[in-house]
């Protein structure tokens, strides 16, 4: 397992570097937006992966609720996976938003346009920040179950958020991201490399966080056992 992780991490880092090279040196400069369009090569993959990880979080939480009375070990694993994926969601979506803001200023002339995509992504970020806050605020027995319940609520909420914001904002002319114009195939391939890089990088980060959490769980267990004098 450890070698697999090392290999995966190495592949991710190399791919990220290659993706940067593609984005900055290979892909042509976009005609209307200029160099700032190159933000997309990381901004879009970050957001795409950040919209998948919430479902990892929700599925892991459902698994936790299902397993907690049956198989303690598997339940703890599911719980660690849920936290890891929520954290990576916040990291990726947060970075994606920052990229969007920095792109919006030169391209649209304003930092924040409240268009459909930006707004729903912000709400997605808020949902998972609130999940992490709940984990922070409550500890002890029961907190895992409660966090899992919130995660299910959040997972159910995500599609509703996206739908409702789209309805809300379609009444306004929203700037279109790429338009219907033809996209240069070199741009496409640069984008695809970056997407692949972030997919693997996301797995690596979740894995690393998961492994850390598992160790922390094991440590807490040992300390608890020592406290009651079993060990």
């Amino acid at each position: 397992m450890k070698t697999l992780f090392t290999i995966l991490a190495a592949v991710a880092v190399v791919l990220l570097g290659f993706g940067l090279y593609q984005a900055f040196l290979v892909a042509p400069t976009e005609a209307t937006m200029g160099p700032v369009q190159r933000i997309f090569y990381w901004h879009v993959p970050l957001n795409i992966i950040g919209e998948i990880t919430p479902y990892v979080n929700m599925l892991a939480s459902i698994a936790y609720i299902f397993l907690r009375g049956r198989n303690q070990l598997a339940a703890r694993r599911a719980d660690a996976l849920a936290v890891a994926s929520a954290e990576v969601t916040v990291l990726f979506v947060g970075l994606g938003l920052i990229g969007g803001i920095l792109w919006g200023r030169p391209a649209w002339g304003i930092w924040w346009a409240w268009d459909a995509r930006t707004t729903s992504t912000l709400l997605l970020l808020l949902l998972y920040v609130s999940y992490l806050l709940l984990r922070r605020f409550s500890d002890g027995p029961g907190s895992r179950t409660i966090a899992a319940v919130l995660s299910i609520f959040a997972g159910v909420d995500v599609p509703i958020v996206f739908m409702s914001i789209r309805w809300w904002r379609t009444q306004h002319p929203a700037p279109v991201l790429t338009g219907d114009g033809e996209i240069d195939p070199v741009m496409k391939s640069a984008f695809a490399w970056n997407l692949l890089a972030f997919f693997i990088w996301g797995i690596v980060l979740i894995w690393a966080r998961y492994a850390t959490l598992r160790r922390e769980q094991a440590l807490a267990e040992r300390e608890a056992l020592q406290l009651i004098g079993v060990a």
Binding site: V36, G94, L102, W103
Partner: peptide, 20 residues
């Protein structure tokens, strides 16, 4: 292209990389 365009591009990638 405006100097802003390149400047914001650099800021964005600096943040992306630093935070990660």
């Amino acid at each position: 292209y405006s100097a802003d365009s390149i400047r914001y591009l650099h800021i964005a990638y600096t943040i992306f990389i630093t935070v990660q």
